[in-house]
Design a binder for these strands. Structure first.
Lengths: 159, 159
DNA sequence: CGATACAATGAGAGTTATTCTTATACGGGC
DNA sequence: GCCCGTATAAGAATAACTCTCATTGTATCG
């Protein structure tokens, strides 16, 4: 991941900023930012796609499975982590969009692979505008949206 | 539900058309359209929001839970039913959009309630167009999309 | 119609991701 | 260094879902 001294510094300061932001959120939720929770966040920040609880525990053997689950739940309630359910029989987790950036997901209907994808800003704004209208006209109060794009990934597509 | 003789007739013929369409799909999948499967489809067609396996079994006591699961799986593979995973700890099912109409879902982040919602046709077309572009430019092959709108329902919203 | 062959059903056992329990370890304030 | 509430870890418990298998339904062929 580290390709030069400059990017190493950038990575380090970005990581520090992330930890500071998370610390604030946990404080607001009256929760501690313990070692295990930092390690968990590091695993999430180091992944470029949503990961499962088992994957997290394997990436950092310090983390026991029960603590991973408990802390994912704490971090989710504090708005740090987003839990997303998939067609597979386990959930996947990623850092909240408020800590990273809004993005959607490409989901392979064959193998279940999930990857991040960013739709055009213009289209995202159109969707947001439409939801604002929904908020005015109905009894439902939208707060955020998420577009799932289902199809076939590179490997599963018939060449 | 039935408010006049006319709508009763319409309902009946719509139901017949639905059953015919499903029969074709099951035939293509080399599956029988048995009594239990018809009953299951009737429950789905009579619901205006995605339902859980337990709800299905309760609505029609003829259906045993193990058969509900088995048949939902068969119907899903035949393209008749769509399984959708929720934040709750159980899945919900609805008739495939090819048998009904494309729609999105409003999901209450508080109580988990799911209801159907139709976005404007214009916006849907814009999304479809964006996905066509994605198909051309990347190695992922989108087939369909689904927009999840998360927020607070009527009852959970602070008045 | 009756026989045959195989698919569908249902009751319950089995599986597995997730949560709960409980005893122990940590960590900040004095 | 001691106290006290919080975090941790190992494994037991839970619950949604799947599998097994004996039985029943059903389409087809004679």
């Amino acid at each position: 991941m580290v390709t030069s001294a400059v990017s190493a510094t950038e990575d380090a300061s970005a990581a520090a900023a992330l930890h500071t932001a998370i610390a604030r959120r946990l404080e607001a939720a009256r929760q501690r930012y313990s070692r295990g929770r930092r390690a968990l966040v590091d695993v999430l920040a180091g992944s470029e796609r949503p990961v499962t609880s088992a994957e997290i525990a394997m990436r950092d053997p310090v983390l026991s499975l029960s603590s991973v689950y408990r802390n994912l739940s704490v971090l989710e309630q504090a708005g740090v982590v987003r839990r997303l359910v998939t067609q597979e029989d386990n959930a996947r987790y990623e850092l909240s969009e408020e800590l990273t950036a809004h993005h959607d997901h490409l989901i392979c209907e064959q193998c279940g692979e999930v990857s991040d994808y960013t739709l055009g800003a213009q289209l995202e704004q159109a969707i947001t505008a439409a939801l604002d209208t929904l908020a005015k006209r109905s009894s439902f109060h939208p707060r955020r949206h998420h577009l799932e794009i289902v199809g076939l990934c590179d490997r599963c597509a018939p060449s």
